[in-house]
Amino acid sequence: MHLLQLFTALVLGTSLGCAAASEEFRPEANTCPQVITCGNPGLNGLPGRDGRDGAKGEKGDQGVGVRGQQGFPGKAGPPGPVGERGEAGVQGQKGEKGETPATDIFQQQIYALESRFQELHDECNNYKQAVLLQGMTVGQKTFISTHQHDTFANGRARCAKAGAALACPMNADENAAVQELAKRGAKFAFLNVNDLQTEGLFVYENGKALGYTNWKKGEPNNYGGNEDCVVIIPENAQWNDFNCEQRGLIICEF
């Protein structure tokens, strides 16, 4: 009984104290300070329902953005169908012939020159063949008779003027070819060999020693003391020293 009365008195005192405090300290909101109760935390409750969507706001100002770089082109699409062939148009009238361009004139002149060159080339070949019929070819050399009789010095100059040299056989075959041309002229022919620099030492025009000779027996003998040149004898193709100032058949080699 005493305990029940004591508990009732405590509750009543607390209520009166709270009422008195509320009268003395009246905040804007009529609330009572919460009483923090110590103890184990309780379990979380179930989540509440989603709230309602708010009112739609006004559209904001459009900003000025920076334009990005252009991307790579995409793959080509499949080709489209071939279109229908158009109708043939009406052929126009043939225009007047224009002036011949300068390039065409030059081209015509070139054709004319080429034609003339070919004619000259053919004529040259004909002359060449005619000359070769009168000459003898051995290996890389061609021997041509001038049918002229002159001194050694004049004969060598005559051949040089024609772009050739005085005949100078360097083997038996070349010697036989020169002999054949000498026989046709029925006279001995000068060879491009001499001992003008050193008596008794016969050399080629360039001063080199002879690599081939076909001396007649007992030759060279420098008969009379002035036989410094060499001739080929038509009858036997042998060589003989000879006076350079005498006249002999001039045969050139090319």
Rank of each mutant, 00 (worst) to 15 (best):
Q109N: 04
A153V: 09
I110C: 08
T151L: 14
G65Q: 09
P81S: 06
N40Q: 05
F143A: 03
A162E: 14
K94D: 09
R85S: 14
T137M: 01
A88H: 08
L120H: 03
Q69M: 10
E96M: 03
Q91W: 07
H149Y: 13
E58Y: 01
T142P: 00
G80P: 08
V82L: 13
L113A: 08
Q91D: 13
P101C: 11
G57K: 05
P81G: 05
R49T: 01
P73M: 10
K128W: 01
N126G: 14
E123Y: 09
T142E: 02
V82G: 03
I105N: 11
D122F: 13
N125M: 08
R67C: 07
F143N: 01
E84W: 00
R67T: 09
Q148S: 13
L132G: 04
N30F: 00
R158I: 09
K56D: 14
E84P: 09
D50A: 12
G89M: 02
I110H: 05
A162D: 14
L113I: 04
N126W: 10
Q109I: 07
Q69F: 10
G60H: 07
T100A: 07
F143E: 04
Q107P: 00
I36L: 15
N125A: 09
K128D: 09
G77I: 03
T37V: 15
L46E: 13
K141D: 11
C159I: 06
G48E: 10
Q109E: 07
I105M: 08
P101R: 06
G65Y: 11
R158K: 09
N30W: 00
R26E: 13
T151K: 08
V82C: 11
Q129S: 15
G71W: 04
K59M: 06
E96Y: 00
L113T: 04
E123V: 13
Q108D: 05
Q107V: 04
Y111L: 14
Q62T: 11
A88Y: 10
G77F: 12
Q70G: 00
E99Y: 00
Q109W: 03
G71M: 02
A55D: 12
T142W: 00
L43P: 09
G89K: 06
L43C: 02
N154R: 08
G155Q: 02
V82K: 11
N44M: 07
I110Q: 14
Q108P: 01
C124G: 07
P101T: 04
P33W: 02
Q34Y: 10
V82H: 01
V35A: 11
T103S: 15
Y111R: 08
L46Q: 06
D150E: 15
H121A: 15
P27H: 02
V138W: 04
F143P: 02
G135I: 10
Q91S: 11
G39H: 07
I105E: 13
R49N: 03
H149M: 14
R52Y: 04
C38Q: 14
G63V: 08
K59F: 02
F72K: 14
